[in-house]
Simulated assay, not measured.
Amino acid sequence: MNIGSAIDLVDLPLIIPHTSVNINATLTDSNAGNKYFIQESISASDASIKGGIVISGEKDSYNIYYNTDSDFNKERLVIHGTNCLPFTYNNKWDQTLPGLKEPVTNLILLMGPSILYRLDHSSLVWKTVEDRNIRGTVMKGATTEINGRLNITYYYKKDFDDDSGIKHPSRIEFSGYDPSSS
């Protein structure tokens, strides 16, 4: 397996394809058995990218706001119920979302589905995996590893070439550990 050169997912640059992007995604945490419905809205200008992530889970919901301006790049403002919680990333997130125990789920929810734009423009090395039947459609796949701890596998429609497939995945699977945790 080839190992990516990134220190952490948060350090990968967020480069969006347009001045505004809306992403709808579903995250299923197979370990905890929870499902999260996620909507992320992103707006870009010359100076920074601003975004909001709305997460509805079976037990909790969160609103997360961020700004990639260099002074705020590793900060998130989380609204949970009536609480406003600041989160900061210094080698790891200083908190976990209320009600979460899984560090990888916490990482992915705080990063939002725009994580695919961080992976797309990074210097990660991808290795082809065996085709897989997902909901009746045969998908091609590619996988990478970050810091020897977190495996990321993209699945995309067979009619895409590898480069286009990684830019337009149908499914992304994360397994392993948050690279910043012990």
Rank of each mutant, 00 (worst) to 15 (best):
D46T: 13
S122G: 04
S175Y: 09
G4D: 04
V54A: 08
D29W: 03
I152E: 08
F87P: 00
G112A: 03
D120K: 15
T68C: 05
P13Y: 00
D8Q: 11
Y156R: 10
I172V: 15
I115T: 08
P86A: 01
T88F: 01
D178V: 04
M111L: 08
M139A: 06
I134K: 03
F160H: 15
I42G: 02
A32S: 10
L12A: 03
T144P: 14
V125N: 01
Y177F: 10
I3W: 04
V104K: 00
S175V: 04
N2S: 12
I115S: 01
N67T: 04
N133S: 15
P179G: 09
L107A: 00
K50H: 03
Y65Q: 04
L27G: 00
D131M: 13
I79D: 02
H18W: 07
S123G: 11
T82R: 12
G51K: 02
H121Q: 03
Y154G: 01
T137D: 09
L97S: 06
A44L: 11
K35H: 02
G33I: 15
T82L: 08
L150E: 10
I152N: 12
H168A: 14
H80I: 09
N83Q: 12
K50C: 11
N67C: 08
N73G: 05
Y66S: 08
D120E: 12
K167E: 10
S114G: 11
I172T: 09
Y66L: 04
D162F: 01
D159S: 15
K157N: 13
T19P: 12
K157L: 10
D60P: 07
L116H: 07
S48L: 06
S5T: 05
I55E: 01
C84V: 12
L110M: 01
Y177R: 12
R135Q: 15
N22R: 15
Q95E: 07
K127D: 14
L109D: 04
A32G: 09
L119A: 07
N147V: 14
N2I: 06
E75S: 03
D178I: 07
V54K: 04
G52L: 10
L97D: 12
N106T: 02
P179D: 05
M139T: 09
E40P: 03
A44P: 14
S41H: 05
L150D: 13
T105V: 14
D46E: 12
L110H: 03
S5D: 07
P17Q: 06
Y62H: 02
T88Q: 14
S20A: 09
K101I: 07
Y62K: 02
I64A: 05
L12Y: 04
F87E: 01
L116G: 05
Y154T: 02
T26I: 12
K127P: 04
N73M: 02
K35M: 09
S122A: 14
I166D: 09
G51Y: 14
S175T: 13
S41G: 08
